[in-house]
Design a protein around this nucleic acid. Structure first.
Lengths: 225, 225
DNA sequence: TCAAAAGTGTTAGATTTACACCCATGA
DNA sequence: TCATGGGTGTAAATCTAACACTTTTGA
């Protein structure tokens, strides 16, 4: 590194993960308790520091893996948060990432190991620093994306009913949707395909199971934000 | 700072400014030549390193001030860019900010002093690192914002004609707009008010001058992204 | 047999788009 | 007088939102 760079101050850089899950028709966030001073014990997102040999995306991926054991998860950058005093222990700038995972894929024993839990997004406790703000921004990002593209299949099992999908959309939007209009739109969007399988756990009559068609999804990529 | 933080690697953090201006019915970006190795001489956004005693927003504001002598400029965060090798001289993570300024407010002598110039966004040269990507993302951000809220008055003089405003929108969108529909929508949005003044520089007949009404703008804030 | 969820189309209203002419003026 | 940009309204098309009944089946 030449002199030009050397004269400048380096800063601790972290990533914070807003991990969304979907359970009991509720949008949930995986949060835990901060395990360092200052602020020990406060509700907090799971985060980690960025290393010199990894990109921001890689740092987010690694952090998520540490917590969940999952790789190749849908993640999007939410934004950088850099107020001087946002972390009372040191100057830390944090880049927030949101991830969507299927609660069923999550190894429950890790909840205890990392002291985290799924909390309904509408019943969040007070949180450390700007973490609430990060979550709010992440949810808004998802809301905007969902309007124009099919997102959120990562929160569901590989096979799902249209009602399950609708409940997911409702949970993210925080509003009820009309069943017929929802089905019309989601089918027009493409990217899901009907199977001949029927799920009978949700009703006596049973509902067709659908799956996400990634190929169609990729092809329509250019329409998206 | 306690031990917990100490064990982690610090990283050089910079801000890069995408400075939009509007001139000759074209959307322009203020870019210059990189004045450090490696990559000296390459086309580059103007940027600066973030200090430990300032927030990201403050760093962006300061950097913009260094270049333009302007404070309190409309700025928005575009996103964080953090590929490991994005800067060949050192590991530098950069947060991109876009700013809107009126080219007329810009002291032309500063162009030479900082070796920067206004370049049409549709005729950008090859640029250093990921700077093209930053510009593209900033433009998209502006496009999205403009659809739902009146943005971009900062690029115009305090009094402007509706045609000037339309040309600005067209430059950002990169597409022509229908005159009648544009006027209808922009008036519905509120936030501009007609004066009794007439501009005769653009036509023989003359066109009414409008001004941005910040009060209305603030009140309608909750409708916005 | 009935409760509970699945599935399916149509219509009114709202929004968006396309489009053409007269006006005022300076050269 | 004519070339130039300023200013204005309407109708068609599209998109969005509201709405109700029949089906299936397990309890």
């Amino acid at each position: 590194m030449n002199e030009y760079y050397i004269e400048h101050q380096k800063i601790l850089l972290s990533v914070d993960c807003i991990i969304f899950g979907f359970e009991d028709y509720q949008l949930k966030v995986l949060i835990g308790h901060r395990n360092m001073d200052p602020g020990r014990g406060a509700w907090s997102l799971y985060g980690g520091f960025v290393r010199n040999d990894e990109s921001l995306d890689e740092a987010a991926d690694r952090t998520l893996f540490e917590l969940t054991g999952l790789h190749h998860v849908y993640m999007r950058q939410v934004g950088a948060f850099g107020n001087v005093d946002r972390d009372p222990g040191a100057r830390v700038v944090s880049v927030a990432y949101c991830a969507l995972i299927n609660v069923k894929d999550y190894d429950r024993s890790l909840l205890e190991k990392h002291n985290v839990q799924w909390v309904n997004i509408d019943e969040l406790p007070e949180m450390f620093s700007d973490h609430q703000e990060m979550i709010a921004k992440a949810r808004k990002l998802m809301q905007v994306k969902m309007k124009t593209q099919p997102v959120g299949f990562e929160l569901l099992p590989p096979l799902f009913t249209l009602t399950q999908l609708q409940r997911l959309y409702e949970a993210v939007q925080g509003a009820e949707l009309d069943k017929r209009n929802f089905r019309k739109r989601i089918k027009e969007m493409g990217s899901i395909e009907k199977t001949r399988l029927i799920d009978k756990t949700g009703s006596k009559r049973g509902a067709y199971l659908y799956r996400f068609n990634e190929k169609t999804y990729r092809e329509e990529k250019f329409f998206r934000l």
